[in-house]
Lab assay of single mutants.
Amino acid sequence: MASDGVVVEIGKVTGSVGTTVEIPVYFRGVPSKGIANCDFVFRYDPNVLEIIGIDPGDIIVDPNPTKSFDTAIYPDRKIIVFLFAEDSGTGAYAITKDGVFAKIRATVKSSAPGYITFDEVGGFADNDLVEQKVSFIDGGVNVGNATPTKGATPTNTATPTK
């Protein structure tokens, strides 16, 4: 695992066909100046998982989280898009600690492993708008004895992609 920078880890949970599971997305290594904004994309298989919603985690402190935390689910493109932009203008609602960034709610549709993997990152910046190093650890849903650990090695991303 990367020793510096922010680590975004997609949790690994267990479920069975027809059940709804909650998959946490963790941030670790949050910089001392916090995270003022970030955007990134995960990939998944809508034939295996139906993403039914995404909720902000406990490290989102904006009293009205829909102003700073936004997501979009595109089953036709097989992606989930995340956007966080601190909304106070003063840094008061920045992410300042490690913990759960988001909770992905999904219904298991198939007995195949439900991988959720890193696809791309736009950027991560602290309260001074300084770009942060970030790496990703894939996860998803274990169905029966299947284990979604494909790509469990962190993917280092030093520069934003478009």
Rank of each mutant, 00 (worst) to 15 (best):
S135Y: 12
L83F: 02
N142I: 14
K78Q: 02
D126G: 02
V41M: 01
I60K: 15
I80T: 05
P75I: 02
L129N: 02
S16L: 11
D76V: 01
A102G: 09
K67F: 10
G151K: 14
P46K: 11
V61N: 15
T71P: 00
L129D: 00
D45G: 13
V143W: 06
T149C: 11
I137T: 11
V81T: 00
T96N: 04
N145Q: 11
G114S: 06
V13W: 04
G53Q: 05
C38W: 01
K97Y: 14
P75F: 03
A102P: 00
T161P: 09
M1K: 08
K97E: 10
V108M: 14
C38D: 07
V121A: 15
D39Y: 01
V81M: 01
I10S: 05
D128E: 03
K133L: 06
G140T: 14
P63V: 11
G91K: 15
I95H: 03
I79V: 05
S88R: 07
S88M: 07
N145E: 10
Y74G: 00
D58Q: 08
P154C: 12
V121F: 01
P148I: 03
P31L: 03
G123S: 01
D98K: 15
Y44S: 06
G91T: 04
E50D: 12
G144E: 08
P24S: 05
N47E: 10
T147W: 07
G122L: 00
T14D: 13
A158S: 12
D98I: 05
S135F: 06
T159S: 13
N142C: 11
A94W: 00
S16F: 11
F82D: 01
T20W: 07
K12P: 06
P113H: 04
G123N: 00
T66P: 09
G139Q: 11
G5P: 05
L83H: 01
G11R: 10
P46M: 08
N64E: 15
N64G: 02
P113L: 11
D70H: 02
A146Q: 10
G11N: 14
P160I: 14
P31R: 10
D45Q: 04
D76E: 03
T14P: 09
A125L: 00
Y93I: 09
I52S: 08
F82E: 02
V130H: 13
D4N: 08
I35P: 01
D62W: 14
N156V: 10
P154T: 11
N47Y: 04
F101V: 09
T14I: 05
D138K: 13
V8M: 02
I104Y: 14
T71R: 05
A85C: 04
A106W: 07
T153Q: 12
D62Q: 15
L129R: 01
G122I: 00
I73G: 01
L129W: 15
R77Y: 15
K12T: 12
V121G: 13
G151P: 12
S32K: 08
Q132E: 02
V141N: 13
D128I: 03
T153E: 12
I54P: 05
N64F: 05
G11M: 04
I116A: 05
I51T: 09
T20K: 14
S135V: 11
A152R: 11
V13H: 03
V13I: 11
T19V: 04
S68H: 15
R77D: 04
E50S: 10
K12V: 04
L49H: 13
P148T: 05
S68C: 14
K103M: 14
V134I: 14
G151E: 10
E120K: 01
P46F: 09
P46T: 06
Y26T: 07
V13D: 05
P148N: 03
G53N: 08
G140A: 12
T153R: 07
G29A: 15
V41T: 01
A72C: 01
I73A: 01
K103G: 13
G57F: 15
V130C: 09
G15D: 14
G53I: 09
D62P: 14
A152C: 13
V143R: 09
P154Y: 13
S68M: 13
Y26N: 14
V21K: 13
T149F: 11
D55H: 07
A92S: 06
L129T: 02
P154R: 11
N127E: 03
Y74N: 00
I10K: 07
D76R: 00
G89K: 00
F27H: 10
Q132H: 02
V143T: 11
G122S: 00
K97F: 12
T90S: 06
N47V: 09
G144Y: 13
T71L: 05
L49E: 02
I73V: 07
G114R: 11
T159P: 12
V17H: 09
K33V: 03
A152N: 10
T117R: 08
N37K: 01
S16I: 11
C38E: 00
S68I: 14
A146T: 09
A158K: 07
T149R: 11
G18S: 08
R105Q: 10
I23L: 11
P65L: 13
V100M: 13
G144V: 10
A146P: 13
Y115F: 03
S68V: 15
I79C: 02
P160R: 12
R77V: 04
D55W: 14
A112V: 08
K109F: 15
K67N: 13
T147R: 10
P63K: 14
K78S: 11
I116M: 03
P63S: 13
G99I: 09
I116V: 07
Y115L: 08
T159C: 13
D58G: 06
G29K: 05
V100I: 10
T107M: 08
F84N: 01
V17T: 07
I95R: 02
G18D: 08
E22T: 08
F118L: 06
I80N: 09
K150M: 04
P65I: 06
V8S: 11
V41H: 00
G53P: 11
S32G: 10
D39E: 01
G91E: 11
P24I: 05
F124N: 00
G139M: 05
T147A: 12
F118Y: 05
G144N: 13
G18E: 04
R77T: 02
N145W: 12
K103I: 11
E131D: 08
V48Q: 10
V41S: 01
V17E: 14
T19P: 11
P160D: 12
G91R: 08
A92Q: 14
V21D: 13
I52L: 07
G11Q: 05
A102H: 04
V100H: 07
P31D: 07
R43D: 05
P46N: 08
Y115I: 07
F27A: 06
A2G: 04
V141F: 14
I80G: 07
T66Y: 15
D62I: 15
P65Y: 12
N37Y: 01
N127G: 03
G18H: 10
G57L: 13
L49A: 13
F101M: 14
V13K: 11
T149P: 11
